[in-house]
């Protein structure tokens, strides 16, 4: 049999096929899976892949948002609209509720990044989720580069990097005892550029803050922070209006904007292909703490 050139899959189609295979494995193998959705571009792609994986049936698992209470309003509006549009079940793990109940305490600088972890673990426990899918990618960070697609967590939600299950071919081991769980990363092999290429080629809507817009910002540790109710410029620092966009969407106290003119998807892709800084290095205060900041947080149960 001759094989026409059309039987080759583009790398984006191949990544899509791999992610859908992984998502279906989760639902087929696990009892109570969930999909973590932050409204960020990676989890948006993940949700779209989950919709495709089970179409025309609805997504057979709830969507979970760990809400720090310090969100960009554009992102929450987007989240609620998508949930409505696709008839999804939304479970919110509220960091504010946990603070009010005295279960966790925010950091002296007002950061709620680290206390997301206990809230996530409690949400997993309360709902008895045995698998949580997330949009993390291996190109984001060096500890993530070593994490499995099916990443085992013990009953404390801990990741043990030296004791990971070997993962071969496309065979994924989702066996757990009660209380243990698996974190699953179907987008492991995607890069930031792949995400944007996918958003463009599949015509996926993302929150408006990803596109360049005018915003009141101030400079903190060399990064542009939006001035809002949670991020207030220190004394003597003036805010100014700049054309910026967000490369990642996280906690509004921590996530910085980058100066950009990219107000269309084509311009974003052009900018992403030319950038000389990683997205976390450019925009995330939480990863700047130490060489092993991510590894340490993951060991505690962070995503």
């Amino acid at each position: 049999m001759t094989q026409p050139a059309s039987l080759a899959l583009s790398q984006l189609d191949a990544l899509e096929a791999e992610a859908i295979h992984i998502i279906r494995e989760v639902v087929a193998q696990m009892e109570r899976p969930a999909l973590l959705f932050s409204g960020g571009k990676d989890s948006i792609c993940l949700l779209h892949l989950a919709i495709k994986a089970f179409a025309p049936a609805p997504v057979p698992m709830p969507v979970v948002h760990i809400d720090t209470g310090q969100n960009f309003p554009e992102v929450i509006e987007y989240r609620d609209r998508i949930v409505e549009q696709y008839g999804l079940t939304l479970v919110v793990g509220s960091v504010q509720d946990a603070i009010d109940a005295g279960k966790v305490k925010e950091a002296p600088d007002g950061s709620r990044n680290r206390i997301q972890t206990p809230v996530l673990l409690e949400t997993i426990e309360d709902n008895r989720f045995d698998a949580c899918m997330g949009g993390a990618r291996r190109d984001e960070e060096k500890a993530r580069a070593k994490e499995r697609v099916f990443s085992f967590r013990d009953e404390f939600g801990q990741w043990d990097p030296r004791n990971q299950r070997p993962e071969l071919w496309s065979l994924y081991n989702g066996k757990v005892h009660p209380g243990e769980s698996i974190r699953v990363f179907p987008l492991s092999n995607w890069t930031e550029l792949d995400i944007w290429d996918y958003i463009r080629s599949r015509d996926i809507e993302v929150p408006s803050i990803y596109y360049a817009h005018d915003r009141e910002v101030f400079l903190r540790d060399g990064m542009w922070m939006a001035s809002n109710e949670w991020a207030v410029p220190p004394e003597g620092v003036e805010t100014q209006v700049r054309k910026v966009r967000y490369r990642t969407v996280g906690d509004a106290t921590l996530t910085a904007a980058v100066e950009s003119d990219a107000d269309t998807i084509d311009k974003i892709i052009e900018e992403t292909a030319a950038t000389r800084l990683t997205e976390r290095g450019a925009t995330r205060g939480d990863d700047r703490v130490s060489e092993a900041a991510m590894e340490d947080r993951k060991k505690e149960g962070y995503f």
Binding site: R138, K142, A145, K146, P161, N189, T191, L193, E295
Partner: peptide, 22 residues
């Protein structure tokens, strides 16, 4: 490529790391 604390401390590679370029 040696992303884990133990790898950095001991100067060895102990696990598979995945890297991407185009």
């Amino acid at each position: 490529t040696d992303g884990l604390r133990a790898e950095r401390e001991q100067g060895i590679t102990i696990d598979v790391a995945y890297r991407y370029f185009a």
